[in-house]
Every structure is written in C-alpha cells, then in structure tokens.
Nucleic acid binder design. Structure first.
Length: 399
RNA sequence: GGGGAGAUACUCAAGCGGCCAACGAGGCUUGACUGUAAAUCAAGUGCAGAAUGCUUCGGAGGUUCGAAUCCUCCUCUCCCCA
C-alpha cells in the first residue's frame, strides 16, 4: 500500500490529526524498521456496554490493525476510580474495584467483535498506577500548572459556574497522560472530547524524553435523541450487544437530521441521495443490525418491525407471565393489578395513568377504565404503550 | 482561622408559617397526527383499590393547632478575607 493511501485511510472521518507531519514521519520510520506503530486506545470501564459511539474509534483501530499496526487497548481501571472529568459538569462518583472489574470483562467480550484479537494487546493501567509512589505523583503533578488546567473547557465552565472541582480531578489528565509515557505510545485514538487529555499526554512524553504521540481525534456520535453525544448515562445509546430488533428499532427512532452522520461514521459511506429519508433510515437500520448480528437477524428484525409498528400486529415473541387461579376472583382480575403482575407498570399509579390515557389494550381492544375487572382467558395479550407486550398463561392450582 | 451565601422531585428552578404533593421550564411517559423522524396539539409525571389517607423539600432534633418555610446542632457546597 502506498504511504499516501495509508495516510488517507487514517485521516478518514478524523476531525483532527495532530500532527500530520509527525504522522507521516512515524509511518515512514515504521516501514523502514518493519515494525507497526504502537496505537493506544483507552477505555473507561465505568460503563460496561459498548455502544455504537464507541464503534467509531474501534473501526479506526481495526483499520490500523489491518495496516499492520499494534493496538494497545488500555482499560483505565485505575483512572475509572477517579472518573474522567471530560465533558462532565459534576464530579463522578468513584467506582468500586468490583464494578470496574466486571465492566472490564464485559468490555473485552465486546471489543473483539470489531478488533482482531491476535493483534490487540489488552492492558490495565492499575498495573503501573497502583503502586505509584506519592513522590512520583508529586513529580507528575509538577509538570502542569493550575492555570493550564483551568484553560480546559469543562473545568473553566465549572469554575465559572461556581461548581465544585476536586483536586484529584486535576490529576486525571496527568495520569492518563502518564499511561502514554509508560506504554511509549506512537499514536492515540479517541473522541474529540479527549483533546485536552491527549495534549497533556504529548507534553508529558516530551518531558520524559519521548517523541510525542500522534493524536487522531474522531467525531462523537450523537445518541438516539440526535442532540447529545451517545452515552449510557444519558440513556440515548444503542448497545452493540442489544438484541437485533432493539438495535433496528432504535435506529428507526433517530431524528432524520443525523442520518448522514450515522452513515458516515458507522457505515463509512455517504447517505444515498436517490431515496427518501424513511428508506434511507430503513437501509441504515438493516445495515447496522447486520454488522452486529448478521444479515439473517437483520432481515428478521426488519420484518418484525414492519409487522409490529407499521401494521400494528402482534410481535412474534411475546414475553409470557403466569397467573394462578387463586390470583383471580370469579375468573376476574383488577386491571391495575394485572399490569403490575405483568411488570408492564412499576406502580399502581403508573398503571392507572397508562390505562386512563388509553395506553393499554387487551387482545387489541382499548381499555380506559382503571377500575375494570377483567375476565381472564388463557393466552390473552396485554399491550402497554407502543411497544410493551405480555401474554397471560394460566396455571392450575396444582402447578 | 474569620466573615457571608446556599442545599427543593430526573435536571434547572420558584416557594420563605396554613391556599403545598409543592409555580414554571426542560426531560420523560401516554394519546392524536405520522415514517417508532421532525413539528404541532392534548394529558400525565411521590405512593396507595384511592373522594380530603400516607411519606416527601440535605440530615437529626425542637417551636407551633399547623413547617419546605421559624429555632438549634450536624453534613456538604460556593464566595470574600487570611
């Protein structure tokens, strides 16, 4: 592959490359020595599920692997206990060691759906951070100044709004940067929200007599609300391990305006312009579902979606729940109680509301009376809202 | 160490002795319209088989017929001075 072509692939979709000149030099050197570059990617295991937003940098890493570079997948189990202040307006609650560990293992299961396992080196930064001496931390902290920390957008904002910033949050970028020093990274890939942290890493590397890493900054994918970046805490994410029908449906619910973004960032192609937005969205949903669950499942999800949401028919698989005879009175049950038992409502009030507002259907018949006692028959289907269903299974007194 | 301000539901934010289960906005839920898009409109958003019952306004006590509102102590945050 021509080096220009390689550069092109690396730059694709990137918001910024710092710097291209350095990158070119590193690529040349890597070729001359016949050794791939060491590419660092850090993951914060505070959220266990990998979502579509993460797949943007992961795809970039895969491209780099395909070109012979080594990926060092760093699980920030130590830094997760501090909490990345990037883009956050509050101090994060610290995670326990156990939580971090659970999340980290789930993480690993999921990344190899995209990355090549053989070309990925997984490391935990607790390996070297855990026994850092306080003297070393002091020394690290002396490399940066308060003024420069406060230049950072999120800190500046919090400071201006008179919101608390804990001292340990200042340490976060330094420790993250030190990871790059420790790993002797040639390149680091991440979202644009990591710009500040990454720049600190470069400075630290320089201070430690290393050549600074090249930064590949990728755009942040918007979540299903189309406004804020995809994240678990905002509950606007599409997890890659979610069931195919779920992924398909969530894609169908994104606002039209961000369709081109999804096409560019997730499929790495331009949105087709020979069809309407609805068709384009369906295509997108099918493609993305297919990437994570295979074509067959994607096709099924589409059919199911058409069936349930377009034709308003019953879905293929309806979760069942068992009702026992003794739970009925004269073969009847109060509707609110039924919704509670079917777990279609969390509280009685919620159930009442749902009913009163016309959100509940029994065997496809609306029911708006919250006082109703329903005569139960086996296999009866309850629908709550647009997408929640439950099927009643009667069980005799003898189990 | 000294002085001042503040903590209200998912978030922001009113309320400053009864009219407060707590204004308003955002979010979210449901319905109408639709393409599970957007925009718009309507309703809802503590719990309770439920006509005025119970538990909520950082925490613990207290005053009062009655407290989110007043008092005391505690915890936490911000600002100014040192």
């Amino acid at each position: 592959m021509h080096i220009e072509k390689e550069l092109q692939i690396i730059k694709e979709n990137a918001v910024d490359v710092i710097s291209e000149g350095e990158l070119l030099k590193k690529l040349e050197k890597s070729r001359a020595e016949g050794k791939g570059l060491r590419v660092k990617y850090g993951a914060d295991p505070s959220a266990a599920d990998i979502h579509l937003g993460h797949t943007v940098p992961l795809q970039k890493l895969r491209q780099l692997q395909d070109m012979g570079h080594q990926v060092i997948f760093l699980i920030g189990d130590f830094t997760a206990r501090i909490g990345d202040p990037s883009g956050v307006s509050k101090t994060r609650p610290p995670l326990t060691k156990q939580e971090v560990q659970n999340n980290a293992s789930t993480y690993q299961e999921q990344i190899f759906k995209i990355l090549d396992r053989k070309l990925t080196n997984v490391v935990f930064n607790s390996q070297w951070c855990d026994d850092m001496k306080s003297g070393e931390i002091m020394k690290l902290a002396s490399h940066y100044t308060v003024a420069r920390m406060l230049e950072r957008d999120d800190f500046a904002l919090r400071f201006r709004k008179k919101e608390p910033i804990s001292i340990h949050e200042f340490l976060y970028p330094l420790i993250q940067g030190y990871d790059s020093v420790f790993l002797k990274a040639d390149m680091e890939v991440g979202g644009t929200d990591q710009r500040f942290n990454f720049l600190v890493a470069r400075e630290l590397q320089r201070d430690f007599g290393q050549e600074p890493e090249v930064l590949i900054l990728l755009p942040l994918l918007e979540g299903t609300d189309g406004k804020q970046k995809m994240s678990k805490s905002l509950d606007n994410y599409i997890g890659i391990s979610e069931p195919p029908a779920e992924i398909y449906g969530k894609i169908m619910s994104i606002p039209d305006e961000i369709l081109p973004r999804y096409y560019n960032l997730l499929l790495r192609i331009d949105m087709p312009n020979d069809c309407g937005p609805h068709e384009a969205k369906k295509h997108l949903a099918r493609e993305i579902t297919s990437i994570h669950h295979g074509e067959e499942n994607a096709g099924k999800s589409e059919q199911e979606f058409e069936k349930v949401f377009v034709r308003k028919e019953l879905p293929e698989n309806i979760p069942e729940f068992v009702l026992r005879n003794e739970e009925l009175k004269d073969g009847k049950i109060w509707i609110v109680e039924l919704l509670l038992k079917a777990k279609l409502a969390a509280t009685g009030n919620e159930a009442r509301r749902l009913i009163a507002q016309g959100g509940v259907k029994l065997n496809n018949k609306s029911c708006t009376d919250p006082e109703l006692n329903i005569e139960i028959r086996d296999n009866m289907v309850i629908k709550a809202g647009k997408r929640r269903f439950a099927r009643i299974k009667m069980e005799g007194n003898h189990g």
